[in-house]
Amino acid sequence: MGYIGPTIRDIRTNKGLSAKYMYNDIMSRVNYSRFESGKIDTSAENLMEMLKRINLMMFEFANLSGRDTAAAVAETDRMTQLVAEGHATKNPENFREASRIVYKSWQEEGYVADHDMYLTMKVYADFYAHHGQVIDAMPELRDLLNYLDKTETWYSYEQMMLYNLLPILSVDELLILLPLYLQRINKVSQMDANMATIGEIFVQAFQVAINHRDYGVFKKLLGMFNETHIQERYMAPHFYRRLYNDYANYYDKKDNACLSEVESMLATVRKLDFPSYYPQLANTALSLHVWLADDAPSLKDVETNG
Rank of each mutant, 00 (worst) to 15 (best):
V208Y: 08
D192R: 06
N186F: 10
D143H: 08
S189M: 15
L221P: 00
M191F: 14
V208H: 08
N226L: 05
E158L: 01
A196S: 15
L177F: 13
A205E: 07
P179A: 02
A196K: 05
G199R: 08
R213K: 15
T151H: 02
Q183I: 04
E173Q: 12
K219H: 01
F202N: 14
G223K: 02
I210Q: 09
E173R: 06
Q159Y: 01
N164K: 05
K150L: 11
A205I: 10
F202E: 14
L177V: 05
F206A: 04
Y147C: 04
V203F: 09
V203K: 13
L165W: 00
I135A: 12
M161E: 13
L165M: 03
M191K: 11
R142T: 12
W154I: 00
E140W: 01
M224C: 09
M160P: 03
K187Y: 08
M138A: 14
Q207E: 15
V203G: 11
L221W: 02
N211G: 04
S170W: 00
Y215H: 04
V208S: 06
G216L: 14
L180H: 11
E152P: 06
M195H: 04
L148I: 09
L166W: 06
F202T: 15
S156G: 14
A193R: 10
T197H: 09
L148E: 07
D136P: 03
N194K: 14
N146V: 07
F225D: 06
I168T: 13
E158G: 07
N186W: 07
